[in-house]
Computed example of a mutant assay.
Amino acid sequence: MSEGKRREFWLQGMATGLPAALDCVKQFSETDFTAELPKIDIPVLVVHGEDDQIVPIAASALKTVELLPQATLKVVPEGPHGLVGAFEETFNGALLEFVRS
């Protein structure tokens, strides 16, 4: 990852207020949308890094695509959480391919 990308993440973190960040973590960790996923009736692209240490793929993307009726899963080999740096091109390519299909 480039020094510029590291600084960008730092800046984003510093621009976020602590109460908002804590509320965000609470919502992400305690809100369960699994009942709503089968109701989504449009094509959905799910992109996930294979090496996501924050939200493991088995606990999220693999379960999500089972519940979405029209899901397309793109697993990014060795991809981290957020798919930053060199992985951005892979993400953008997957997104363009999905939109064009």
Rank of each mutant, 00 (worst) to 15 (best):
A35L: 13
L37Q: 03
G13L: 05
L83P: 00
M1T: 15
L45S: 05
T64Q: 12
G17Y: 07
F9E: 15
S29N: 13
T64Y: 05
A15R: 08
V25H: 03
V55G: 06
P38Q: 00
P69W: 02
L62H: 11
V55P: 01
V84D: 12
G85F: 00
V55S: 09
R7H: 12
F9N: 14
A20F: 01
E89H: 14
T72L: 04
H81K: 01
C24H: 10
P69C: 07
G79C: 04
I40S: 04
L96G: 07
L37E: 03
D51Y: 12
V47W: 01
E30W: 10
L67K: 09
P19N: 06
E97A: 08
L67M: 14
S29F: 10
F33G: 14
A21S: 07
G82Q: 04
Q70V: 05
E89C: 12
F33D: 14
P56R: 05
M1C: 09
F33Y: 14
T16A: 14
W10E: 15
M1Y: 07
E30M: 11
K63D: 12
A15F: 10
H48R: 00
T34E: 13
Q12C: 14
V46R: 04
D32T: 05
T34K: 09
G49T: 03
E88S: 11
V55T: 15
F98I: 01
D52V: 04
R100F: 07
V44T: 09
V99I: 13
K63V: 14
H81G: 04
E3S: 13
G49C: 06
A35E: 15
L68Y: 02
Q12M: 14
V76E: 03
E30C: 13
D52S: 06
D41V: 07
C24T: 15
F28H: 10
I42A: 08
A94R: 06
Q70W: 03
V99T: 08
A71P: 00
V55L: 09
C24V: 10
Q70S: 08
D51V: 13
A94Q: 04
I54H: 11
V44W: 00
E89Y: 11
P38D: 06
P69M: 04
R7F: 12
L73V: 00
V65Y: 06
S2T: 11
I57Y: 02
E66C: 12
L83R: 02
E97G: 02
L62P: 04
G49Q: 00
E36M: 11
H81L: 05
L18N: 04
T31E: 08
L45C: 07
S29K: 12
V99F: 06
K5T: 15
W10R: 14
I57R: 03
V25E: 05
V99M: 08
I54P: 13
G13H: 03
A35D: 15
V99G: 06
T34M: 11
L68D: 03
I54M: 15
G93E: 11
T31Y: 02
P19M: 01
P80E: 05
T90P: 09
V76K: 01
A58M: 08
T16R: 02
M1W: 10
D51I: 11
T72K: 07
